[in-house]
Amino acid sequence: MTQAKAHFTTDTAVRLDVFLTQQLGQTRNQITQLIDQECVSVDGKATSKAGLKLKEGQTVYIIFPEQKSTPALEIDFDVEILYEDDDILVIDKPSSLTVHPALSVKEPTLVDWLKHKGISLSTLSGEERHGIVHRLDRGTSGAMVIAKNNVAHEALSLQLQDKTMGRFYLAVVNPPMKEEVTVIDRPIGRSTHNRLKMAISETGKNAKTEFRKLLPSHDDTEELIVCKLYTGRTHQIRVHLESISRHIIGDHLYGSHTKSDKMERILLHAYILYFTHPTTHEKVTFTASLGPVMEDYLNKHFDPKEFHALIDPIRIEHLFSSESL
């Protein structure tokens, strides 16, 4: 078996371990292990310094060590496939499904499902995250793209970096937003008060989200909004909303203890995903259906005819013009 390789070029000065954490979606500890195993070189020169300061325009090369395959856990669920070809798999991740294994995760994950399906996947993110280009929080449902080979994985990772891959989320919030358009550009880091949460932190990673009003609920206490991510930080939408005293219905970690206590899931859904296909180089767009819980909630608390018209994918993409960037 040929060892997996990858390379990325910096567009700014940054620490080596920080840069690879951003590119590969792995933890700082995993990146440090790669560097310690002499799997990383910069401009062709091997390095063992995780804190090496990279300059703009330098290229980092990674040769991944061969991974020992771990058996998949038994699964009792299925995942809807929105699209599949030789290079990519686009799925609609259900709420309550964790994307990849971790020490704290005891139940089967999306990676376990992929293993059971026997789908050939990339290895750039290692055995426990193979094929995973980007992730969704456990409670968040919606569209995800998975790489089936290393060439596709590297191409898609670069699109995450240069923002040519985009995502639009639908959410139900309480109380309604004040402005038609709200842009929050504030860094996010781990909360110092609750290690399960993220928070606005001046020492955190840069994070930018744009929110737009769509439709108020029947009683005007809630609102359906659409959110566009310009970065992909952990819990980004939820943290940015909390920073302006807004919460997503069903969010037990960041939300207020009102109607959300009765919800079986958070009403946050990755509705639209677009990117450039790594082989055909054509822009492709995928839409993930709302699912029965979110659909039923919207039908009950909002005007069904109105919200279905407002979430037309073409209409949503037109809402976000280049002027708002």
Score class of each variant (00 low, 15 high):
323 E>D: 15
6 A>F: 08
201 S>L: 09
228 K>H: 07
222 E>H: 12
154 E>G: 03
13 A>W: 04
219 D>A: 01
325 L>E: 15
142 G>K: 11
272 I>N: 06
234 T>R: 10
92 D>I: 03
131 G>I: 00
209 T>G: 13
8 F>H: 00
152 A>K: 02
102 A>S: 15
86 D>S: 13
173 V>S: 06
71 P>T: 02
271 Y>K: 07
293 V>P: 05
256 S>H: 14
175 P>L: 12
194 N>H: 04
314 I>H: 14
130 H>V: 00
169 Y>G: 04
13 A>M: 08
159 Q>D: 02
74 E>P: 09
202 E>G: 05
284 V>N: 06
96 S>P: 05
45 K>Y: 05
140 T>V: 15
33 Q>F: 02
179 E>Y: 11
122 S>Y: 13
319 L>I: 05
159 Q>M: 10
102 A>E: 13
318 H>F: 10
154 E>I: 09
97 L>F: 10
76 D>H: 15
285 T>F: 02
310 L>Q: 15
312 D>N: 15
263 M>K: 11
239 V>R: 06
83 Y>C: 08
180 E>N: 14
46 A>Y: 09
72 A>I: 02
98 T>W: 08
274 Y>A: 02
18 V>T: 14
276 T>A: 09
188 I>A: 04
241 L>A: 01
58 Q>I: 02
268 L>V: 09
59 T>W: 08
271 Y>L: 13
17 D>K: 00
127 E>G: 01
319 L>N: 09
196 L>E: 12
276 T>Q: 14
230 Y>P: 03
216 P>S: 02
72 A>S: 10
3 Q>V: 13
220 D>R: 14
33 Q>H: 06
75 I>D: 01
160 L>H: 00
320 F>R: 08
253 L>H: 10
63 I>F: 01
278 P>D: 05
29 N>V: 14
13 A>T: 12
162 D>P: 01
58 Q>E: 15
11 D>I: 13
275 F>K: 03
133 V>E: 04
109 T>G: 13
106 K>D: 01
248 I>M: 02
287 T>S: 03
165 M>V: 05
156 L>W: 07
320 F>C: 09
117 K>S: 09
246 R>Q: 13
3 Q>I: 12
164 T>Q: 12
178 K>Q: 13
15 R>Y: 05
110 L>S: 07
316 I>M: 02
136 L>Y: 10
303 D>F: 03
245 S>C: 04
178 K>G: 07
256 S>R: 15
217 S>K: 10
248 I>R: 06
251 D>H: 06
226 V>A: 06
206 N>T: 07
263 M>C: 12
1 M>L: 11
321 S>F: 01
262 K>D: 14
116 H>S: 00
253 L>A: 10
264 E>I: 11
117 K>P: 00
160 L>E: 04
23 Q>R: 14
146 I>F: 11
82 L>N: 11
103 L>A: 15
64 F>K: 06
2 T>I: 14
25 G>T: 08
116 H>C: 04
215 L>S: 04
